[in-house]
Amino acid sequence: MTTPEWLKPGIYGTLLGAAFVGIVGFSWGGWMTGGGAEEMANKMAQEEVIAALVPVCLEMYRTDNERIAKLATIREASSFKRRDAVMEAGWATMPGSNGPNRDLAKACIEGLDLDES
């Protein structure tokens, strides 16, 4: 099929315009693929679940009979080892789970007042 000469600039303009709109939309327009949206939604859901579980972790701390010794161990640990110390204390293990949650342990550290004497 032959395309009339007067139609070629319109076809080229349409193709370039579509490419430009796609590039601008995905770069600056906030568009995203379904996979990117799902990844963002999963991350947000994980963060919200952890935030909702922090009070449970703090309650486990408050009701632990050995909390003074465990808290001393956590305070003595270097800042990057505190998460592991909270996990070992058992405060980041939710009832019904197989093991401690690293993200919950990190969030729980922020809820514990480690600076008090």
Rank of each mutant, 00 (worst) to 15 (best):
D103C: 00
I11T: 05
V24P: 02
V24F: 01
G36Q: 08
K106N: 10
T14M: 13
V54D: 00
G30T: 00
A72L: 12
G34A: 11
R62A: 09
V56I: 13
G34N: 10
A19K: 08
D64M: 04
N65Y: 10
E38P: 04
F26E: 05
M87A: 11
E48K: 15
V49L: 11
G99M: 09
L53Y: 10
M1T: 09
G90S: 02
D103S: 05
D84H: 14
A41Y: 05
E47N: 07
E59P: 02
F80S: 09
E59S: 08
P55D: 04
L112S: 03
F80I: 07
E59M: 10
F20R: 08
T73H: 11
E110H: 10
D64Y: 00
R102L: 09
R67H: 06
A45Q: 13
R75L: 06
I74S: 01
T14N: 09
M32K: 14
W6H: 15
G111D: 03
M1I: 15
S117H: 12
M60H: 08
K106V: 03
E5N: 11
P4F: 14
G25P: 01
M1P: 03
V54P: 00
P95K: 05
G34Q: 12
V21R: 04
A89R: 00
A52H: 13
V24I: 12
A19R: 08
P55Y: 05
V21Y: 03
A52V: 13
E116I: 11
S27F: 05
G99Q: 08
W91A: 02
A72D: 15
F20S: 12
A19H: 06
G10C: 10
R62P: 01
E47Q: 09
V49Q: 06
V54G: 02
A105H: 01
M40Y: 05
A45S: 11
T14S: 10
R82Q: 07
G13V: 04
E76D: 14
D84T: 15
G34H: 13
G36R: 07
L7I: 05
E48H: 10
G10N: 10
N101R: 12
C108Q: 02
M87C: 07
R83D: 02
I23E: 09
T14V: 12
A89G: 02
D84M: 15
M32H: 12
T73W: 05
T63A: 08
G30L: 04
R82V: 01
A51V: 04
I23S: 10
G17A: 14
S78E: 15
I23V: 15
L16K: 13
K8C: 09
G34L: 11
T14K: 11
F80E: 06
R67P: 00
G25E: 04
F26H: 04
W91F: 03
